[in-house]
Simulated assay, not measured.
Amino acid sequence: MSVNASGPGRSVIVTGAGSGIGRATALLFAREGARVLIADVADAAARSVAEEVERAGGTAVTVIGDLRDQAVVDRVAETAAEEFGGIDVLVNNAGVMDSMSAAADTGDDEWERVIGINLTAPFRLTRAVLPHMLAAGKGAVVFTASEASLRGSAAGAAYTASKHGIAGLTKSLAVMYRDKGIRSNAVAPGGTVTNIRVDADRGAHGPAAHGPAAHGPAALAPYMGNVGSPAQAEEQAAAIVFLASDAASNINGAILPVDNGWSAV
């Protein structure tokens, strides 16, 4: 049953929409009749999804670029506002995984890349979109957080810190803007079938390098048996679209696990 997620004609931005959860989310919004801005760093992938959105009955525009660049952030917000006449929904989905490194093994480059893409970019885009939502007196922001937002045993130091940051940002927005008609929520996916890469060398962070305490993948391995069956990207998209919909009109500041019970273990 449709939850009228975006409403016919509503304006939606989805970042990281060229593949995985972002692609599935853009297509589901399109089936609800939304106009979707597809933001992604990969030109060919974004344009392919835009064509799928059009075939699904929606309207699509693309903005290509790295969201760590403020100029790209500004272009996303400005394009959606100009092309669609406003911004009703922002889905901050784009993200990267770390190498499952423990803090002592996390270099500055890895830290800055992961924090930049996973936390700083969503903050900046939200900041750019808020004036449009405030002017309209309504809006919904949905973040793709992670199981790593809820625990310390699902990823490395950089990714875990970035996703805990997303949980905090989600809640801060909910408190600050709940009287302005703007809601902020997040999904916390567990294992999900996507093309996100985990570049981890299990031996690189193990006991041999750092003495008796296991680091990185070796330390996390005992907890990964609780993951359960992975979700499909479409299952994450359904939760995202629900949180953006009028059916979730009184849900604000929630971090919704979509993890087959992993967070309950």
Rank of each mutant, 00 (worst) to 15 (best):
S2M: 14
S11T: 04
A17D: 09
G18N: 11
S19C: 08
G20K: 08
A26W: 12
L27H: 03
R31D: 08
A34G: 09
R35D: 03
L37A: 07
D40G: 04
V41Q: 10
D43L: 13
A45F: 09
A46C: 13
S48Q: 14
E52Y: 12
V53L: 13
V53D: 04
A60Y: 10
V63L: 03
V63Y: 10
I64V: 02
L67F: 06
D69M: 04
Q70V: 15
Q70I: 13
Q70D: 10
V73T: 05
V76Y: 07
A77Y: 11
E78I: 09
A80E: 06
A81R: 06
D88C: 04
L90T: 04
V91G: 06
N93Q: 01
V96G: 04
M97A: 03
A102N: 07
A103W: 05
A104C: 15
G107N: 07
D108A: 07
D109N: 06
G116W: 05
I117Y: 03
T120M: 01
A128C: 09
L134N: 11
G139K: 12
A140F: 14
S146P: 04
A155F: 00
A155K: 00
G156N: 01
Y159L: 00
T160C: 00
A161F: 00
H164V: 01
I166D: 00
A167L: 02
A167K: 05
L173Q: 09
A174T: 09
M176G: 14
M176Y: 14
Y177K: 06
K180T: 08
S184K: 10
N185C: 02
P189E: 01
G190H: 01
G191W: 02
G191E: 03
G191S: 02
N195P: 10
G203N: 14
H205D: 11
H205L: 02
A208T: 12
H210P: 14
H210K: 15
H210V: 12
G211S: 09
P212N: 03
G216N: 00
G216V: 00
G216M: 00
A218P: 11
A218H: 07
A221G: 07
P222I: 01
Y223Q: 01
G225A: 01
N226S: 10
V227S: 12
S229W: 13
A231Y: 14
Q232C: 11
A238E: 11
A239V: 04
A239M: 13
V241I: 09
A248V: 12
N250H: 15
N252S: 10
N260H: 12
N260W: 14
G261K: 06
S263E: 08
